[in-house]
Structures are given as C-alpha cells and as structure tokens.
Design a protein around this nucleic acid. Structure first.
Length: 546
RNA sequence: GCGCCCGUAGCUCAGGGGAUAGAGCGCUUGACUACGAAUCAAGAGGCCGUAGGUUCGAUUCCUACCGGGCGCACCA
C-alpha cells in the first residue's frame, strides 16, 4: 500500500515513460525524475525529462516539454501538466482526489504512515552501550534518542527491528571499578584513603553510594576486587537501564561481554582468523590484516605479553551479531570511535560478509548551552553531566526533541533555556500545542456526532497544504528510515503543526456551516492522527491539555 | 604528516546538478467582541569559505587552497 503522494508520482512516471518512447531516445524509465518542487508556485510535483531529452533530440527543452504536455492524457489524480521555466513539467494534484487522504488517515488511524519498504528485513540496532562504570551522560542520551527513534521508524517502514545494548562488563575498566569499590569500603570503615588517588581508578562519589549499598545488602559477594567490580558493574548497568526506561527506551537484549568471554567466542574467533591466515605474528604480537579491506593499518589483537587488546571481545561480539543472520546490523558509536570503523568493516569482510552488512554511524557530541554560554561538563560546581540531571531539568519530551532535531553526524548545541521555554519559541510545545488544540475541538464535537464528511469542501489553499502534508507522511517515514535520518521527523512535524496553526487561525471549524464544519473537523482529526504518530515515533508525549 | 567530516542569513541548522537557495531563533511592525494568543501575518537580513574544472545548467560533483572539528595506541 503506497501513499497517495507516491501513487501520483508513479502515475506521472508511468505515463511519461510511455510518452517518451515516441523518440526512441534511449531514456530508461528510472531516469525520469519526478520530484517535489522547491517553489509551491510550481505545482506539487515536477519533472525534468525534457532536459534529459533535449540533448539527444537536439531540440530546445521547452519545445520537448510542450510536446509532452500536449500529448498528456487525463489522469484522475492529476491536473494537466503545465510547462514552466526553461522546460519543466509541473504537475498539480487534483484537490478532490487529494482530499480523500483524510479518509485514508482516519481509517488507518495509528497505523497511518507505515509502509513496507523494509520488506521484512531483519535489522539489529546497537546504541548507547556505555561502560557500566558510571551513570549515563548527556551524549548517551542523544544516542539513545536517535537509536530508539531510528528503530521506531524502521519498524514503521517494514523492518523487523531489535534493539541491543552491549555491556562492557569485563576487562580492565571493571577491575578499576572493583578497586574503587574496595577503596570506598575502606573509607566507609574509617580507614585512610590513598593520596593521591590512584591513576585510572574511578573517583566518582557514586561509587561510595554503591559501596554503602553493598554493605546494606549484607555483603552479597566475596570482598575481592573482581567480585566487587562485577557486582558494581551490574548495579550500574541496572541504573542505566532504569534511566533509559524513564527516557522511553527499552532494549530487547542486554548483551554481556563477560558472558561472551566465558563462552569461548574470543578464542574461537582468534583461532579462525589464524587458520585463515588473517591473524599473523610480527614483533612478538599477533596482527589482524585489516589493511586487506582498506583499513589504515593492521591491528594488534594479541599483544606481545599474550593478553588481548580491547578489539578482540569487540570483534567476537560483532562476529556473534553477524552470525545471528540479520540483514543489517547498525552501530551507533561515539565520535571517539571514529578510528574504529575501518577495522570493524574489515572484520565483517574477513568473516565473509558483504561490507554493507554492518553499518556504522557516528553520533556527534552534545554541547550544553545556557545563557549563550557553554555549560562546563564538570562534576563539580553543580553543572550537570548526567542524562538523569538533564531530564530532571528539561523533561523527557524537550530532551528527545532537541536530540533528534539535528542530523546525528553534526555536533549539537543543546540550548537549555530554549528547551525549558513554554512558548511558541520552543518547537516541542509548538507541535504539542497544535495537537492539544485539535483534541480540544474533538472534545467539543465527538466523532460520533458528525455526519460523513464531504471532503470536496476542502478547497482553501491552507487546507490543501495540510492535505499535501498528510499525503506525504508515509514517504517521509520511509525516507527517514531508509536513509537513517530521524531528524527529518521533527522538521516535518514542525511544518505540519505550522500549517495547521495557520489554517486554524484563518477558518472557523466547528462554527462553520455544517458541510464545511464536518470536512474541516475531519481534516483536523487526520492532522491529529499524524501528529500523534509522528510524536510517537519520536517518543514524545501528546498531552490532552497544556 | 595521513584519513574522515564540516564552512549556507546576526545565531543554530536543513537542502544537495535545475526555475527567485529554505526553516527556527533573534530583530522590526501588525492581528483576539470568534472553537485554546503556548497562535497567526508582514518586513529586513545571503558573492552557499576562496580559486579553478566538468556541465546546456554548480550552492550541490571534481581538484587545489584557506578556516574549523575529529580520528590516527601492543588504551578501553
């Protein structure tokens, strides 16, 4: 089931591809571009075929366009095309045909916007995956919002999606966490702390709270550095999970590095690479020949002292993911992992998979801005650093909106003042307000009390703009999912809300003559359906009243 | 030094071979005797970093340069 907008586009492409056959110019149908015009005055859809043909035909594009327009046979969805500029074919959807989108939206309800461009393919999204050695920080929140919304978008567009969190609950950093626990326990018993604090051991005060909890729980593990580290890591992981749930993000799987290591997967992977001659010894260490697949340099996996680099469990984890048979595995990594992409992509190919099976995206940093000044991310002086503190201050809805507003690969300035503003300046409230207004209308005039609307009443340009918005929504969702671009969603919703606010300001809805009132209310309710779906995909609430 | 990303309105950012380059914020000026003014309208504001190249057409693609960010561990 494709959207009305897509149907119209396909109808143009079909007819044009038939019409151009008259010239035998060797133009394949796929080369006929039908796009949204930049200017509203240029219709709803525009094609530049005439330019493509002008070359081979040695005729002016405008003449070609005029011949095509003259040969056009009527279509129920479209007005006859007009020739514009130097040879554009401008198409306009018939408003009566377009207006039927309202009925489609209301019938589909919360499913409107779904499509099957994903074709049921299985996708695994891994995101956040912060070390369980402390609370989540602000940039983790951005990854969480982006990853979760991308998952929602892809699910809506026909992928089977799973969300996964890779827990680094083993290795060096857990040992250091265990050391920190051990020191804090000594502190709690009134013993002196080392001065200076040992390098690399987590100094955060949250470890003291954990140590207290460990005592209060009746010393649930042996008091060894290893056991304390593992216990603390699990406690912190559980806190991260709670924080993410509060943020609206629920994972299908928490994948433990410790469990992976215990399964022998690391040894198995190393053995396999050795057997295939992809892991070779040099200078006393063992190197993965990742340069074969374009990495900058080969990478050490087994150090000269026999221990593994961090890449080994990570590689084993990715091998595990790929072996699970997903059509695509998507990693959202932090900017500090930029240099990691090459070896991961090499690994994928070394294991015999196409490189595209693993997709790596970098989620860029977040800079908090208050009063025009960058907020220092220091743990001292009351400046917050954790996701929890951010959510406490601005709320889940604005936080998710601002995280999703920018393309994920550009650094984000998070304006704390704007996020807390309860006015039209704040885009979250602007969109939510549009929804609340419609809900207010619906309270005044329940759906059951209305006659079946005559949608041909919707003739005003401002109503037509809304109809186009509605018709485009399924394509927008599909595009955002396909190109992994969740930021398209807030842009679209802001536009839709703006078009509604204008319509609402200009025309009476309930107080219009009955046929118009019914049609306008139906349109409004359709707008609400899409606002709710769009905000839902962003994980943002839709309040009844504001 | 090598590699990747980015230079678009005062600010924060979209767009990505085609018609007059868009949005939000900020600024100026207007609009409630009406279903929600947390709203709406109008205006000012641009050599799309610089110079070449490809093209009928470049802000978009290519090259060089300038400016910014980030990566380049037998760290995790």
């Amino acid at each position: 089931m494709s959207s009305r907008y897509a149907q119209a586009k396909a109808a143009i492409q079909n007819q044009l591809s038939v019409l151009v056959q008259r010239w035998d110019a060797g133009l394949v149908p796929e080369a006929i571009a039908v796009e949204e015009p930049t200017e509203p005055g240029h219709g709803d859809l525009v094609s530049n075929v005439a330019f493509r043909l002008a070359r081979t035909l040695r005729r002016p594009p405008r003449a070609v366009a005029e011949e095509l327009a003259a040969a056009w046979s009527p279509h129920p969805a479209l007005e006859p095309p007009e020739v514009g500029g130097a040879g554009f074919l401008n198409f306009r959807l018939r408003t009566a045909w377009l207006a039927e989108v309202v009925r489609e939206v209301l019938e589909a309800g919360p499913r409107y916007g779904s499509s099957d461009v994903g074709g049921g393919q299985r996708a695994l999204l891994e995101f956040v995956s912060a070390n369980p050695t402390g609370p989540l920080v602000v940039v983790n929140g951005r990854s969480a919002a982006v990853g979760d919304t991308l998952a929602r978008l892809m699910a809506a567009a026909g992928w089977q999606v799973e969300r996964e969190y890779y827990v680094n609950d083993a290795g060096n950093q857990i040992e250091r966490l265990g050391e920190a626990m051990s020191l804090r326990l000594r502190e709690l018993r009134g013993q002196p702390l080392p001065d200076p604090w040992p390098e690399g051991v987590y100094p955060g005060e949250y470890v003291r709270d954990l140590a207290q909890r460990w005592l209060a729980a009746g010393r649930p593990t042996p008091e060894t550095v290893e056991a304390l580290g593992e216990w603390a890591a699990e406690a912190l992981r559980a806190e991260q999970e709670q924080e993410l749930l509060r943020f609206g993000v629920r994972y299908d799987r928490w994948f433990s590095e410790r469990a992976l290591r215990r399964s022998g997967a690391c040894e198995a992977l190393l053995e396999r690479l050795r057997r295939e001659g992809l892991l070779v010894e040099a200078d006393g260490a063992e190197w993965f020949l990742s340069t074969r697949w374009g990495d900058d340099k080969d990478r050490v996996m087994v150090k000269s002292d026999g221990s593994w680099t961090y890449f080994v469990p990570d590689a084993a984890y990715h091998a595990d993911k790929l072996a699970r048979g997903y059509d695509v595995a998507i990693d959202l990594l932090g900017p500090d992992h930029h240099g990691y992409i090459g070896r991961l992509k090499a690994l994928v190919q070394a294991l015999g998979y196409p490189a595209e099976r693993l997709e790596v995206h970098i989620v860029q940093l977040v800079r908090l801005v208050r009063g025009g000044q960058t907020v220092r991310m220091s743990k001292r002086g009351g400046s917050f650093v954790t996701l929890g503190e951010l959510v406490d201050e601005v709320g889940v809805d604005p936080a998710r909106w601002f995280f999703l507003e920018r393309a994920m690969d550009t650094p984000l300035d998070f304006d704390l003042d704007l996020a807390q503003l309860k006015s039209n300046d704040n885009p979250v409230y602007y969109v939510q307000y549009a929804a609340a207004r419609i809900k207010s209308l619906a309270r005044l005039a329940p759906a059951e009390s209305l006659p079946d609307p005559d949608l041909s009443q919707l003739q005003e340009p401002e109503a037509r703009a809304l109809l186009l918005d509605l018709a485009r929504f399924p394509d927008l969702v599909a595009k955002a999912a396909q190109s992994r671009a969740p930021h398209l969603l807030p842009r679209y919703l802001h536009q839709l809300a703006g078009d509604f606010h204008l319509f609402y300001r200009l025309y009476r809805i309930l107080q219009a003559p009955p046929p118009q009132a019914a049609a306008r209310l139906a349109l409004s309710r359709a707008v609400l359906v899409v606002l709710e779906r769009g905000l839902g995909l962003m994980g943002i609430s839709v309040p009844e009243r504001m």
